[in-house]
Amino acid sequence: MPSELINNYFRTETLPHIWCPGCGNGIVTRAIVKAIDNLNIPKDDVCIVSGIGCSSRAAGYLDFNTLHTTHGRALAFATGVKLANPKLHVIVITGDGDASAIGGNHLIHSARRNIDITTVVFNNSIYGMTGGQYSPTTPMGDKATTAPYGSIDPNFDLCELANAAGATYVARGTVYAVNILEKVIQEGISNKGFSFIEAIATCPTYYGRKNKKGSAVDMIKFLKEHGVMYTAWQKMSEDEKIGKFPIGKLYTKERKEYTEQYQMLIDSLGKESNQ
């Protein structure tokens, strides 16, 4: 029997999903739905926009207004949706390659504008849909089909990138720390501005296998052992931080929201009509 959450928020006729056994994407997708459910937002008022890749297929499974766009462009489409109808809660579902390689420009500019969109990056450190090529978040030295000798590309810290670009809510969760993931997505949706949530997900099929990370369970255990709550992280020494990463709410700031600013401009000009 599917859970009430699945019955209420998933298009059950489109299931089963395409993800591999052990993939973390289902956990992140559930966390997004749970956050929306906790906030009691009517389904008609939610618009999910996704790009291309494994994670972006989530949009089709969810019973909201859903827009599965071109590779890297989810945030650009979402900007049009949000500006055209600011009443919609716009949530972007994207992957590490989609958001930070081909779509990296849209990410930094959406953050710069502080447009009220919540972006959840399913970061599995690999291009999964195309069979395991290295992405901007593949850790340096790790292997991929296009990095057979180990990647020499330094990897992005997406939260630092989003924060520097101007996002007003920045957080990280993992597919192990599900409660934290739900909580930060919920806070992100509630934040009136650009919210960025990095959800560390697992890809045992490509990233895990190439890098001898063990089973899906082993990979989730790794997230349990290496993700440290930000409050504790701040008290750690530089030596203690090596190999670990902070999770939870990382940054918040007060900035003007883009669509509100545009509405103020319209109001200040006084509406003229050509009818």
Binding site: A78, T79, G80, V81
Partner: peptide, 8 residues
Amino acid sequence: AAALGASL
């Protein structure tokens, strides 16, 4: 892309 989103 934004124009397509706004049209939808």
